[in-house]
């Protein structure tokens, strides 16, 4: 997973997740508060520069991660730019009266918000974000599902990779029909593993006298207060930029 690799290897890994979360939240507010599309585009550019130059995320990784979202944005914006006129006989596709303006407004806002999200996820590992959610009083049961999901998804990913390799070596994906059958068997096998692995985890937890929440040692961020102050200052500057620029 490209995002998780970047989140562990970037320059700002030792910065407090609370500070990065605070800055990303402010950046989201700035993207929504931007009064013009060009302001939102400037905010997106600032956030991208901060992520690439500040945190040291490779530009190619950044573009690869954002590609699927940009594809959705292109499709969505195109449908906003055009309108269907059903008045004169048959339906006719035409440029909407406010099409380009709407396209620019939604497109720039989405780019700004996407850049804020990418800043957060490319600089902060998911396990740190879960710890942050715990401090923000997220329901314990939801956190438990998240912790287990995070740990098990790598186990399942390995299981899928190995099964796919074994099936491919036996020409399991040689035709669409065979591919569908192989995929069905793979998913059925994984489905069974859900119960087997859950039972094994339950037995392991019971054997260790587990009586409720699953707790892990959380990393300590010695400069958390300083980081939060800087993030608040930088975040409020972004919001001010969004409100001032016209």
């Amino acid at each position: 997973m490209l995002i998780e690799q970047a989140a562990y290897a970037n320059r700002w890994r030792p910065v407090s997740p609370a500070a990065k979360g605070l800055f990303a939240a402010n950046a989201l507010i700035a993207a929504f508060a931007a009064s013009t599309p060009s302001t939102a585009a400037i905010i997106a550019a600032v956030l991208m520069t901060v992520t690439v130059l500040g945190a040291g995320i490779a530009l190619l990784s950044y573009l690869r991660v954002s590609a699927p979202a940009l594809l959705f944005l292109a499709l969505g914006c195109l449908s906003l730019a055009f309108s269907i006129d059903v008045g004169n006989g048959g339906p006719v596709l035409q440029l909407a009266p406010t099409g380009w303006h709407k396209l620019a407004e939604v497109g720039a806002r989405s780019l700004g918000a996407l850049a804020a999200l990418l800043f957060l996820i490319l600089t902060t590992p998911l396990i740190d974000l879960i710890a942050l959610l715990r401090r923000l009083k997220t329901p314990e049961l939801l956190l438990e599902i998240m912790v287990l999901c995070y740990r098990m998804l790598f186990v399942f990913s390995v299981a899928i990779d190995e099964t796919l390799t074994a099936q491919s070596a036996r020409l399991g994906y040689a035709s669409p029909r065979l591919a569908m059958r192989s995929l069905g068997e793979l998913a059925a096998n994984l489905t069974l593993q859900v119960w087997q692995r859950a039972h094994a985890l339950h037995v392991a937890a019971q054997a260790r006298n587990n009586d409720g929440p699953l707790r892990f040692i959380e990393p300590v961020f010695p400069h958390a207060r300083r980081d939060c102050c800087i993030a608040a200052l930088a975040g409020s500057s972004l919001i001010a930029l969004a409100l001032v620029l016209r």
């Binding site: 438990e144 287990l148 399942f156 489905t191 859900v194 859950a198 339950h202 937890a205």
Partner: peptide
């Protein structure tokens, strides 16, 4: 109580699926 682990594992399953 044995279902406690099931839902987290199920979420991981849904994610990889």
């Amino acid at each position: 109580p044995e279902q406690r682990m099931l839902l987290g594992v199920a979420a991981a399953f849904a994610f990889v699926l």
